[in-house]
Every structure is written in C-alpha cells, then in structure tokens.
Design a protein around this nucleic acid. Structure first.
Lengths: 194, 194
DNA sequence: GTCTATATACAGATAGAC
DNA sequence: GTCTATCTGTATATAGAC
C-alpha cells in the first residue's frame, strides 16, 4: 500500500522516459504520473538529466542478458541457446518498449555505456567457441552468431509498428506472431548443430 | 553549385532530424545547417511538424527494401536471399543512423505508416513460399524468416553503441565487423537450403 | 523571397512559506 | 518533506520592413 515518494517518482519516471524518450519526456508528466508535485522531482533528483541517468542505467542492466546464471555446464549448446533465447524473449514480452528506448538513448548518449560489464557477452562467446572446438557446432563466427541471435530476438520488438503494418497484422495478431518467435528462431539455430 | 533554398532545407532537416530525433531537433539547428534564416523554414514548410512528416515519409520509403526489382525469376532462392541481404546492408552502411531514427519515430507516431505499400514484403514472402513448395528450402515460416533476415541486417546498426561496447571493439573495429556481416548471415541462411 | 524583431508558450529549475 | 508562486531561458512561430 505504502510506497515512498522516491519510489513513486522512479516508477513514474521509468514509464514516462521509456514511452517518450529523454527529449520527449516532461517533468510535469512524471509528476502527474507519480501523483506528486513537480518540485519534488528536483528535491529528490536535482535535475531531469540526473533522474534520467539513473533510470537509463537501471534499465540497461535489465536489458542485458542476465540468463548467464541459469546456464549449466552439462547443457548441450542447443539447450544453452534455448535458455538464452527463451529468457530474453520473456523479458522482452514483459517490456516491449524497452529495447527501442535503450537503443535510441545510447545512440544519443553513448557515454553511459562505459560503466557496463562485458562478462555476459564474453561468457556466451566462450560457450560458442568451446562448442565449435568440440565439433558440437558448425564453424561460425561466435561474435556474429551472438549478434544474430540477439537481432532475431530484439528486432521484432523494436520494429513492431513497421513490421506489423508490413505483414498486415493487427496488434493481437502480432502478439501471436511474437509468441511463435522462439520456435522459429530455434529452428534456424538447430541447423547449425551437428 | 546552385541548390534551391527548399532543397537546402530538406537536406539540412534530414541530417538534423535523423541525428537528433523529432523532439531533440531544433529549428535553429536546421537553419544553421542549411545556412539560411530560421524564418525561411516556416515560409517553406509552415511548421516543424510538417517539415518532419515530409522527411520521415521520404526516409521510410528509402528504408524499405527496394531490392525487389533486382531479383530475377531464374535466380535460386539463395541468390535471392543474397541480393536482399547485400542490397540492404549496402544501404545501411551508407545510412547507419537511419534505422534507429525510423524505428523510434514510428514508435512515437505510427500513423505515418498507413500510407506505405506492402508489396515488397508480400513479394519476398511469395518467393520464400514458392521455394518451400519446390523443395528448394527447408520448411520454415516465411514471415518469421523474413523478419529474422531483416533483424540480422538491421540490429548491428541500431545497436551499434551497445554492441561495440559489449564486444570491446573500437569504431574502426566495429566497421570491420559490419563489413563481414554479409558472409556470416549467408552462412546461416545456407543451412536452410536443401 | 529574405531578413530582423518580436510574440507567445512552456520547459526546467528555484525560493520560500508551511 | 511538501506545497505555491515565480524566475529564467529558450523553443516554435509570426509580423512586417525591405
């Protein structure tokens, strides 16, 4: 029932920034959404810029694949792929507007990325390399494969308006399309496994 | 040597809108870029909104695959894939910031999409369906395959800041990475061909 | 068509009472 | 901590001289 003012601001700011972007967001919109006074935003966070940085940093960390922990050593490479794709698609289905927000924000201000850890990517690339050495996987470039996997997951979300229009799908039909996505991505990835 | 004022405005507006987005763009920046007076923007285009609509519509049309005309009936499906991927990646390498601009803009204002033709997508999906019937291609969902192809092409561009950081690549190294992209996408697509 | 000057609106941010 | 009132800058847009 009780939410602190600071927490209310953060939740409202997430919603407004993710929806409207930094330049499109209004401090008044955030205050309205949080049902508090506009002056409180500055009392707690000093400036729009500072509030935004905090929201963006938090969201980027959620956006990066945190699935690495789930992966077990005994899994086959295909099972690992499935864990990554599945975990990622689930997060995206819960936060469909998140990727376009993050990608656009980092384009306009890449400095924020410097504090981000690279272990997740390195870990996944390591798995792929090992699977190739084992003969478990066909010879492909690990970095390109990882980018392809992420692209296949993320693109239908960042391109939702244009893709649903081009495919002639209503919002409901496009949701259904997204739900079939995992199976279709895995069909492609299976072809790479020996 | 001679460029009409209207043309100078359009070129400047393309540059500024694509770089900064609608909300981030300033009419003064466009005027400076075009080396004309700010009042001229309103004389020729009435409002920022109208100028933006015109730029965005033009850019979306360039963004959609116009490669369909190149495709010949005698080509194998793999050659058709290669034509699409190659044409698309070339356009992207010449306009690296275009996709993030269009995708973000259509997210904020999807109405603009209504005037866009769907033939390009339908044409490509038709080719894929036919190839499956012929036994030329493994059984995959044509719509998903098309979205996967586009995602593999576009994602490395829209995610450039985050991907180059995660892979630990400098700008030059990332450019090289992008230049190898075609080969790696085709490696994946080849596995789908019988 | 092109300029200068200005109108109008609204954004982020702060001062100060309670 | 929370509010109202207000400051200050700057954005889009227009009026009107040339």
């Amino acid at each position: 029932m009780e939410t602190s003012t600071e927490e209310k601001i953060i939740q409202a700011a997430e919603k407004v920034f993710v929806r409207d972007g930094y330049d499109g967001a209004r401090m008044q919109s955030i205050a309205d959404e949080a049902e508090i006074n506009k002056a409180m935003l500055h009392y707690y966070f000093r400036s729009k810029e500072k509030l935004f940085q905090q929201i963006l940093t938090g969201k980027i960390k959620a956006f990066l694949p945190t699935i690495l922990g789930i992966i077990q050593a005994e899994m086959t490479i295909l099972q690992k792929f499935e864990a990554v794709v599945d975990g990622y698609l689930k997060m995206l289905s819960e936060n469909p507007r998140l990727p376009i927000f993050i990608l656009f924000s980092t384009y306009r201000n890449p400095v924020i990325l410097e504090q981000l850890p690279r272990e997740v990517f390195h870990g996944l690339i390591g798995f792929i390399k090992k699977a190739i050495r084992n003969g478990e996987l066909k010879k492909v470039d690990p970095e390109h494969l990882l980018v392809s996997m992420m692209g296949m997951c993320v693109f239908p979300y960042v391109a939702k308006p244009i893709a649903s229009h081009m495919l002639g799908k209503s919002d409901d039909e496009y949701l259904l399309f997204l739900r079939n996505r995992k199976k279709e991505i895995m069909t492609l990835l299976k072809e790479l496994v020996n």
